[in-house]
Design a protein around this nucleic acid. Structure first.
Lengths: 209, 209
DNA sequence: GCGCAAAAATGCTCTCTACGCAAGAACGCA
DNA sequence: TGCGTTCTTGCGTAGAGAGCATTTTTGCGC
């Protein structure tokens, strides 16, 4: 029995990932072409070159196969946030981590915009996307709480800050697609945050008086 | 042909609403007792006293029946936001509307907490809840945009502000349940916003200099 | 190169979801 | 009371989702 899992993906793991990717691509292309409701698991499996029964070993639903959420992202985001300099305030740390994530996720503009448009076109996919976002948000909330030491009086900050940050990312993604991938993500996200901060500024003054 | 729809619900409409409510209550009670996966449409229909086929005339899925989203809420929220005094800033207007909504939604503490706990216990329900929130958020985003006249430079505010506000409501709901329904919603929501504003304050100073 | 054990792929079957269709029942209204 | 509308229901079909057992593939030690 092997004592430790191989650091580098073994051939076996590699092939599993390749199969997963093949199913995802088949599902994405078919749904993009024919619409979600017209595509069956059978059709996806056939295009990916495997038996229908095998589909269920990789994804729990058609939607999941199309969205293909990377289950390692939540932990990666948590680690990235905790790896930020200790003195950095939670807002900046979170912003930097999410900026980087958005840049990575959209490194290839063409498939990124296709994915974005497909999700907009098929509302059913939104649920799967929302579930994926929720996992990432949950991990980030915990990480933010850990960074600020989670004293009782600041207890609500992690959740509401992450919610605001995700809102900023969502609108940034939209504007990025609208601008045909011209404007860089840090600029877009900063603008969203700045506008929110501007709107919330009166609350700070109230408190200070 | 009737020229206008009756202002008061006719007997027919009334009965339809009663049936819908009966299905919802049957679904909620059964799922609360046995778990989502153990409950079938057939069981729900039987408990509600109608044929399984009839279920599908009222809800699109088991989850929808349990959550029972009121489809009139998005428009009601939009109207409420637009009805706020013209001079009021978007932040305050949105906060007031959502405070009121949260108070209404939780007027009866006991079923409200039961619902909250059930959704926490059954992650599958979260998708249906998220879809409902999304509808409401969309309506509010449009209303906020309308209020601020949606000039290009402030374009991102509606989405990110509504996202932050919903985050505040979510954490407020959680804390409200934790506090055994003691703390009032306006206080909880204000606290969430205040903490977010505090965290975002540095961004305002950067802009002002 | 060979064979064993673990893991993956597959076929079969069964239940449940979801919905189109058309017949029948209940209802509102004149 | 009779007519048209709407609601309810049964039937039939297609697909989702998953357990189980069998077959195939793969990694690995010899």
């Amino acid at each position: 029995m092997p004592v430790a899992t191989a650091v580098v993906a073994s051939h076996r793991v590699r092939k599993k990932q390749a199969t997963r990717q093949a199913i995802h691509e088949a599902a994405f292309d078919l749904v993009d072409a024919c619409g979600l409701s017209q595509v069956t698991i059978e059709a996806i499996s056939e295009k990916a070159g495997l038996a229908p029964r095998t589909f269920w070993s990789y994804f729990a639903s058609k939607e999941d196969a199309v969205v293909n959420h990377d289950p390692t992202r939540p932990e990666a985001l948590r680690a990235a946030l905790l790896a930020r300099p200790a003195g950095e305030d939670p807002l900046t740390a979170l912003r930097r981590v999410l900026e980087q994530e958005m840049i990575e996720r959209n490194r290839d503009p063409e498939p990124a915009t296709r994915r974005h448009q497909l999700v907009q076109r098929e509302p059913q996919l939104m649920a799967a996307v929302a579930a994926a976002y929720d996992e990432m948000a949950r991990a980030l909330v915990e990480a933010v709480a850990q960074r600020i030491g989670s004293p009782r009086e600041k207890d609500m900050l992690p959740e509401v800050l992450v919610a605001a940050a995700f809102g900023a990312c969502r609108v940034a993604q939209q504007r990025w697609a609208d601008s045909r991938c011209q404007r860089p993500f840090p600029e877009l996200i900063d603008e969203a945050f700045a506008q929110l901060a501007q709107a919330l500024a009166p609350l700070v003054k109230e408190r200070q008086t």
